[in-house]
Amino acid sequence: MAQAFLFPGQGSQKVGMGRDLAEASTAARAVFQEVDDALGQHLFRLMVEGPEDQLTLTENAQPAIMANAIAVLRVLEAEGGFSLQAHGECVAGHSLGEYTALCAAGAFTLADTARLLKLRGQAMQAAVPVGVGAMCALLGADLAKATALAEAASAQLLSDGRPALCQVANDNDPGQVVLSGHREAIERAVAMVKEHGIKRGVLLPVSAPFHCDLMAPAADAMAEALERTSPAPMLLPVYANVTAALVSDPAVERDLLVRQVTGRVRWRESILAMGEGGIERFVEFGGKVVGPMVGRTLPDAAVTSVVTMADIEAFAKTL
């Protein structure tokens, strides 16, 4: 059965993450220690003990989610006889998860991935003052409805006379799309959902408006960082967020990672493309976030989430 390996994005962090893995496996402990050393901080302690508001900060959440997923992968490799290259056809990750996918596929070292994500989180947070931007999830919305709503919410100027920005940030599955932009425009969009035939709009508890044009300063920062730390050749190709297409050229992927900061996460299209490419089983490492999106996009696909030691042992038996 052809398999794709998936990695979650921001929002999958929670206090206590990684504790059981570290207690059970030296391979997991090694991952968390290497990330701590690379960042010069006690990130693993923050993951295990909190406080939650510090873990949720973008600059901490992004490397933490990556470290947890890679720890799952390393335990599976060490104790389950797993090989990414031998058992899979491709990798993909949702937003920051694309970096995790590249780390898993050998394009970035673990230490470099941690440093890149720390910088990415800091640059995204610094790009827009707190309170200026926002994001909302549209439930019961397809891409066409969400696009029309975003255009309507952008049509009216902001209260200070500037043009409003509201864009589709994430096309997650057939019934969930996320908008990002100026807070005023996003709040306007939430208030207008019924007019556009959308079931519900929910403001998201995020500290910055990710994946929209307001993130341009962060894209510039990542362009500089990725010039210094470019991807190496990959063990498996990656489906890029911004193109929903398979990429194996490291130079192309580097440019796409820069575009990803302001660009739409085309997750639904990526999953459809994987299905059309013959993928029958989707395995999410380190979370239970993107797996359900896959299930709503390809109802007949086999979907597995591998998070705990029990999950690892169960999945290893299927190899």
Rank of each mutant, 00 (worst) to 15 (best):
V261R: 04
R162L: 01
G93M: 09
Q122M: 04
P8A: 12
G131P: 02
G161D: 02
G9V: 11
F210G: 07
G291Y: 12
G106H: 02
S230C: 06
G286D: 11
G9M: 11
C212L: 10
V307R: 15
S25T: 07
E151Y: 05
D53S: 15
Q156A: 14
L143K: 13
T147R: 13
A30R: 15
D255V: 06
V261D: 02
V132E: 06
S270H: 05
A314G: 11
V306P: 10
V177W: 12
R120S: 00
Q125Y: 05
A101K: 06
A144G: 06
G93K: 07
G88K: 04
S305N: 14
G181E: 09
A64W: 01
S207A: 08
W267E: 11
R74T: 03
N241S: 00
R254A: 12
A22D: 08
T100F: 07
E23V: 14
L46V: 10
V283K: 11
A164K: 01
A153W: 01
K118V: 03
E89R: 13
V190P: 00
G175W: 11
A244W: 04
L6H: 15
P205N: 10
S305A: 15
V132F: 00
E89M: 11
V168P: 05
M135R: 03
Q176V: 11
M135Y: 10
A2P: 15
A155S: 12
R183A: 13
A141L: 06
L96E: 07
E23K: 15
L236V: 04
M274D: 07
E227H: 05
V75W: 02
A27M: 06
L298Q: 09
S154N: 02
P174L: 10
H42D: 15
A208Q: 09
E253M: 14
V289H: 15
F315N: 09
L157C: 09
V307G: 14
S159M: 09
L116C: 03
L226N: 10
V290G: 14
L165D: 09
G11V: 06
G277Q: 06
V72E: 05
L214P: 08
H94P: 12
V247H: 10
D142Q: 00
E52T: 08
A153G: 03
V48E: 12
L117D: 00
